Simulated scan of single mutants.
Amino acid sequence: MAEVIHPFYDSHRGAMEAAMRHRLDLAEAMLCERAHLTDIAGIRQEVTDEFEIVLTQMPYVGGAASRMSDFFMRLMGFMAISRVLRRHGVLLSMIGEIERETYKAQLLTMPEAERLASGRQFMSPENQTLLREQAAKSATTSHQKEFPEDFVYDFVEPGPSDTFEFGINYKACGFCKFAARHGDKEILPNICGLDFDAYATRGIHLERTQTLAGGASHCNFRFSRLPSD
């Protein structure tokens, strides 16, 4: 029986594939010069084929109603790229470097005004209210039963001596669950490393000292605004 892509992800397939192809364009020189791969066309085809598999494996966590759906759609392409590069013997550290540099370069193709506006929206009181609501919902038994592969998290208010504006403690991670299910645990830390550039390019400082992927009890995300130039 053929594996099925969830209709929500299938409707976004074109955008996800385009983003992945763009990352491969940005990575081409590094794949040649650092990873010493020569058949780049072959690598591209392998990644495309692997992404078809990843699409069938992506967990559905609520579609447009869940902020975490966007996380999966933006980052699952890296799973396909990582799997292929590992099969070609590329070191995990090298994969991490290539992925982080290409992701940052891709993020910076967005106009600065748009990136910073997105960052201000993320840090806004309105979004913090939404995050509190979604965090509370993520921890409910009914939500975890309906979407067992979703993230579970708490909203963290700053204390009197804290310098961050708000935080999120992820107590269960959708990517960790995905990696455990499909044999991608060694790739996972590289996926985690992408978070810092994802926020920095939007004018947000992320402080994080531990992750579930690293064996901690939770991922401790702490957010504050980067100073304006």
Rank of each mutant, 00 (worst) to 15 (best):
V4G: 00
H6N: 06
Y9F: 15
D10F: 09
S11M: 12
S11C: 04
G14C: 03
G14R: 15
G14E: 15
R23D: 11
L24D: 05
L26S: 08
A27L: 08
E33F: 00
R34M: 02
D39S: 05
I40Q: 04
G42V: 13
I43C: 03
D49V: 08
F51T: 04
V54W: 06
T56R: 08
A65I: 02
M68K: 07
S69Y: 04
F72E: 00
M73K: 06
R74V: 00
M79G: 00
M79A: 13
M79Q: 13
R83L: 08
R83G: 09
V90P: 00
L92R: 06
S93M: 01
A105D: 11
L108T: 13
T109R: 12
E112G: 01
A113D: 07
A113I: 10
E114V: 03
E114C: 02
A117P: 00
A117D: 10
G119Q: 07
Q121H: 12
M123Q: 08
P125N: 10
E126D: 13
N127K: 12
T129Q: 14
Q134H: 05
Q134T: 15
K137N: 12
Q144R: 15
F147Q: 06
F147M: 06
P148K: 09
E149H: 12
E149M: 15
Y153C: 12
F155A: 04
E157W: 02
D162Y: 04
T163G: 12
I168D: 04
C173A: 10
F175T: 02
K177T: 11
A179S: 15
A179E: 05
A180H: 11
A180N: 11
R181M: 07
G183N: 09
D184L: 14
C192G: 07
C192F: 08
C192H: 05
G193S: 11
G193V: 03
L194Y: 03
D197S: 11
H205E: 12
R208M: 14
R208K: 11
T209K: 12
T209D: 14
T211N: 09
L212V: 02
A213I: 01
G215W: 09
N220D: 15
F221R: 04
R222H: 12
R222W: 03
R225C: 13
L226G: 06
P227Q: 11
S228W: 02
